[in-house]
Design a protein around this nucleic acid. Structure first.
Lengths: 340, 340
DNA sequence: CTGTTAGCGCATTCAC
DNA sequence: GTGAATGCGCTAACAG
C-alpha cells in the first residue's frame, strides 16, 4: 500500500474548481457559499475522503473543539456517571473531550489545567472548587468557559453546577433522626473535600439535635468499595456497639454495611438503619431496598457541556452563575422504623 | 487584566540567548543541548511560564501525543476499569487521552476512527474486533499502533489484548455443572458481541454435557443493571421454575439475582447457584459471597498503553501480536453445593 | 552542539 | 459570494 500524501483543503479546492478558502468556508459557514459551489465541494470531499486537520485549524484560528475535563479519578463511580452525562451533552456537536485525572493531587490538577489551557480548549470542566491558588488564577484568566462541577458554594470562577454536599448529608442525618434512630454514625472513605463537607453536615445535624457530645465517625482516606464498607462497619461496631444507624459517604459503603449486617445477623432496618449517598441504581434493587441521598451526576455532566455550548453560541449564563441541582432524599426500607 | 500575548518559543529563545530551534530541542532531546544552554532555557521557560502549543507542534511534526480511545460506552462498569488501567499506564509519559464513545453503533465507530486518525494520534485503542469493514481498512492503514482490547480471537489488525469470552463463559457454566447443578440458565443484558460469545460458551458447555435440548436463556439488549438482574431472574423463574443455577452476563446482574432470590426466600446456594462475570470487587463482599469469572480489565487498559509506549520507543511486539490475559474462575459460597 | 531556511494545513483580513 | 496574501508556532532537514 502506497503511503498516500495527506489530502488537504487545496486538493479539494482544485477538484471543486474553487479556492481553498471557499472550501474552508463551506465547511464552517455553508450558508456563505453558493449552493452550486457547495455541492461541488461536497462531492470532492467525499471523493477524496478529506478530513480537516484539527491541528492546522487550531493553529490558524487559535481555537480548538476540545473540551478539557479534569476529574480526580476515573475509578470513582460518581465520575463515571458524570462522564456519561458529558458524552450525552456532546451529541450533535463538533466537540470532543480530553480527559485528565488529578489523583486528588492539587499540583497535578494545576499542571493539567496549564496543559489543557495551552491547547486553547473550547471549554474546561473541573471537579469541585478546591483548586490551588495557582490553578484558580489560571482558570480566572482562561479565555474559554470554565465550569466547576459537583459542588456549589463559593462564588464560581465562571460557572458552577452541582449541589451542596453539606446540606445533602445534613438531610440524610436528619432523616435518620426523624425515623427514630438515636445513635447514628458516619462512615466515610476517600475523604476528598466533598466527603469532608458531607461529614460536616452530619456533625452539624447531630449537634443541632443536642447530640454533639461524642463524634461517631469512622473514616479512611482509602478509595471507597463495598468491601471497605463492611470493614468500616465492623470497626464501628467494635468501637461503638450502641450504634443504631449509619450515614454512608456513598452507596458502595452502604451496600457493604448491609452485607456485613447480614453476616452478623443484625436486622435492617430494625436494629440498624442504613442510608447511602448518591442513590445509585442498585440501591432500589437491594434487599431490603436502601435509603439514599440522591444526586444527579448525569445531569451535572450533561448541563456542564450545555453551558459551554450555549456560551460558544454567544448565549448562556454570565460569569458567576451557579446552578444548584439540589438533592433528593429517597427513603426506603433500610431506614423505615417507627420507634427507638 | 491585560490580555497578554501568547508566550512562544521565540520569546524563550530570546531571553535564553539561543535560537528557537535550540529551545525546541532542549524540550524534546535535552541531551543534544549543552548543559549551559539548557539551564538558561529552563530559567527562561519558568520565568515566562512558557507552555508548548500542541497544535503547532502537531502541524510541524505530523504527530501528536494523543492516544485515541474508542469504547462503546462510559456507563459500562467494565470500561471504567479499563480506563483506570489506561490512566495508570499513562503515568510519567507525555501522552494524553482522547476518548470517544460509539454507543454500540458501528457507523459511529467508523466515523470516530476517521476523526481520530485525522489527528495523527500516537496510538489508537479500540474495543473488540467487530469493527465494520470500512473501519478495519482505516485501522489497517493507520500509521500508528492500533490496539484492540477486551477480546482475543481472530488475528489482530495490529495488536490485541484481552481474553476469550467464549472460553471464560464456558468455564463458568462448567463450574455450575461441576458443583452439581442440573438445570443452569443464562441471564444476559446489553447483548454486545462479547456477551454473544459468552452466551455461545454457555450453550456449548451445556450441549457438551448432553443438555443441549432446551435453551434456558433470558436476555435483553438493555444496558445492564442490578435492577435488571432481578427482573430477568423473575422472568426466568416464571418461565422455567426448575432452574437451579444462573450464569450471569456480568456482576451487576448477579447481584440483582441475589437480591431477588432473597426476596423470594430462595436459598443461595442451596436452591439456587449464582455465578457472575468479571469478578468486580463487590462480589467477594456480598453475603453470601458470589462466585464469578474474573477478568483483568485494569490490566487490559494498562497493558494497551504500555504496548503503545513500547512501540513509540522503537520496541514492542510486531504487528499481529495478541496477548491473552485469560480469566480466573473464582468459586465462592454462592455456588458451593455438594449435591443435586 | 547550534543555527538557517522552509513549510506543515488552515483561517484571518482585506480586497474585489 | 469569492479570492489573494499572510502568518499561526513549531519542527524537519540541512548546514556549519
Amino acid at each position: 500500500m502506497e503511503k498516500t500524501r495527506k489530502v488537504t483543503l487545496a486538493d479539494v479546492a482544485e477538484i471543486a474548481n474553487v479556492s481553498p478558502i471557499t472550501v474552508s468556508r463551506a465547511l464552517r459557514n455553508p450558508d456563505k457559499v453558493s449552493p452550486d459551489a457547495r455541492s461541488r465541494i461536497a462531492y470532492a470531499i467525499s471523493r477524496l475522503g478529506y478530513v480537516p486537520d484539527p491541528a492546522a485549524r487550531a493553529l490558524a484560528s487559535g481555537r480548538t473543539d476540545i473540551v478539557g475535563v479534569i476529574i480526580p479519578s476515573v475509578s470513582n463511580n460518581v465520575f463515571a456517571d458524570v462522564m456519561r452525562g458529558i458524552y450525552d451533552g456532546l451529541q450533535d456537536s463538533p466537540l470532543g473531550v480530553q480527559l485528565g485525572t488529578t489523583r486528588y493531587v492539587p499540583a497535578t490538577e494545576e499542571q493539567l489545567i496549564r496543559v489543557f489551557l495551552s491547547q486553547r480548549p473550547a471549554g474546561l470542566i473541573v471537579a469541585g472548587h478546591d483548586q490551588s491558588a495557582g490553578a484558580k488564577t489560571l482558570l480566572e484568566n482562561a479565555e474559554c468557559p470554565v465550569v466547576q462541577i459537583m459542588e456549589v458554594g463559593p462564588p464560581p470562577i465562571d460557572l458552577a453546577i452541582g449541589l451542596s454536599h453539606y446540606r445533602a448529608a445534613y438531610a440524610g442525618a436528619q432523616h435518620l433522626l426523624d425515623m427514630g434512630y438515636r445513635a447514628p454514625a458516619f462512615l466515610g472513605a476517600q475523604m476528598d473535600p466533598r466527603s469532608q463537607r458531607r461529614l460536616a453536615g452530619f456533625r452539624d445535624c447531630l449537634a443541632a439535635a443536642g447530640m454533639g457530645g461524642e463524634d461517631p465517625v469512622v473514616t479512611t482516606p482509602e478509595p471507597s468499595s463495598v468491601t471497605l464498607g463492611g470493614q468500616l462497619f465492623a470497626d464501628l461496631m467494635g468501637a461503638r456497639p450502641q450504634t443504631d444507624a449509619v450515614l454512608c459517604n456513598n452507596d458502595d459503603l452502604a451496600l457493604g454495611v448491609l452485607f456485613e449486617a447480614q453476616r452478623r445477623n443484625i436486622r435492617v432496618p430494625g436494629q440498624m438503619g442504613i442510608c447511602g449517598f448518591n442513590d445509585h441504581e442498585m440501591m432500589s434493587a437491594a434487599e431490603p431496598p436502601l435509603t439514599s441521598v440522591g444526586t444527579d451526576r448525569f445531569e451535572m455532566g450533561r448541563a456542564s457541556i450545555q453551558q459551554i455550548r450555549d456560551r460558544l453560541a454567544g448565549q448562556g449564563h454570565p460569569r458567576g452563575h451557579a446552578i444548584d441541582l439540589g438533592f433528593r432524599l429517597v427513603p426506603r426500607a433500610s431506614t423505615a422504623r417507627g420507634k427507638a
